[in-house]
Design a protein around this nucleic acid. Sequence first.
DNA 1: CGCGCAATTGAGTTATATCAAATACGGTGG
DNA 2: CCACCGTATTTGATATAACTCAATTGCGCG
Lengths: 233, 233
Amino acid sequence: MKEITIDKAWRGAERCKNCAIRHLVLFSDLSHQDFDRIHQPIDDLEYEPGTRLYHQGEELRYVYTVRSGLIKLVQHLPNGTQRIVRLLRQGDLAGLEGLGGQVADHDAVTLDHASVCRIPVPVIRDLQRETPNLHDSLMRRWQKALSGADNWITRLSTGNARQRVARLLLLLDEASTDDSFFLPTREDMGAMLGITTESASKVTADFRRRGWLKPLGGHRAWIDARALQEEVD
Amino acid sequence: MKEITIDKAWRGAERCKNCAIRHLVLFSDLSHQDFDRIHQPIDDLEYEPGTRLYHQGEELRYVYTVRSGLIKLVQHLPNGTQRIVRLLRQGDLAGLEGLGGQVADHDAVTLDHASVCRIPVPVIRDLQRETPNLHDSLMRRWQKALSGADNWITRLSTGNARQRVARLLLLLDEASTDDSFFLPTREDMGAMLGITTESASKVTADFRRRGWLKPLGGHRAWIDARALQEEVD
DNA sequence: CGCGCAATTGAGTTATATCAAATACGGTGG
DNA sequence: CCACCGTATTTGATATAACTCAATTGCGCG
């Protein structure tokens, strides 16, 4: 597991005002004046695959907005097993629990190359106190995270291995803008679905043989969503 | 499934000020003046076991604070299977997603006899606009719900049936104040753990034979937490 | 080209689901 | 208080799915 590497850091809220995906991020509803209330640097960071942003139990000094890429939230059990409890993508926040002063509930690890904005917790606390514009935006994040977690239980942790893999692929596919999507390692698929690496591999290989899944290289793939949909219901 | 029955309705915010468990509920941080901003009735309701507060897809006009009892949140899949994604108990909120204007993500159904405060969504919206005191309290609810969901995945949807049942019993036990706790039907246990009713029954019966679980009648039970803890790690 | 890791595949074992039957339990009415 | 009924639970036999362990293949990268 690699440590964090910072490729570039823009440092500052000025860039936020002109952010290309501002409509998607936490600060979408902020006014021009609100940005002037930001007194600590917001850094724009690039992480390579397998980078850990923070780990379970750690004090969270930052909240992270995903600009691009995929991030997994991993939770460890006392007995050593681990489970991926959620995936974060464009517009999602990692480390939300830090806003309440809690330590991290999970490890946050990039799956592929990821671009992330790192916002100091005090910045959000201050903005929250001085402007109400952030509240709706923040509540939508909580809401989205929660419904994501619920879906994870019902869709990815219910039914047989075949259905779970199919639902995961459909989930990854519909999240993507183009017709290809990031295909996780079989080990990660297993950790997401509560099945073994081998089981994930066997189902995946079967889908490929049937022509419903086509790997495109570089950890990307295409699926026949129609066919896979029929597997799940 | 029974419809809602209202045994008593206190109607009004006056009672809230003197609520016996106010330190646990959403309005813990409100000032005396804040209560005067409440212009719609908050009803104190009693539900019998198996009552549905609302169902998935329904518009949420209220948020519900659990005063006592247990409530299950059930999510239905298109193929007809259903899964219990969370349990709510004293101090928890049902229908949080209604605050953002969304329809209900789940069915909310009482497991045992439950006492609940029903708060109109506009009341919370108004308070939120006029006083910042609610924000922390509300965020803690989101945070708690989310970590509850994460735990549900890692503890109750991971490992073999035996471990899952053990973890569920431990969870129900530690939530309880006295040394007894509510023991769900095997069917509900199955829906919580992603296993069949029969599997839940077989494990439960085995724990009983070993003396680690003692049913006390009236859907209540006692466990040897020490022994069960050893089963999970 | 070959090294190392990921993915695949297969055989054997175990756990869980499935189906069916028997038993226990709670509530109701006599 | 007891008998009865419907439902939940338990139990068993069998089928099936998933896990485990081990070996092999494939692939990306230096």
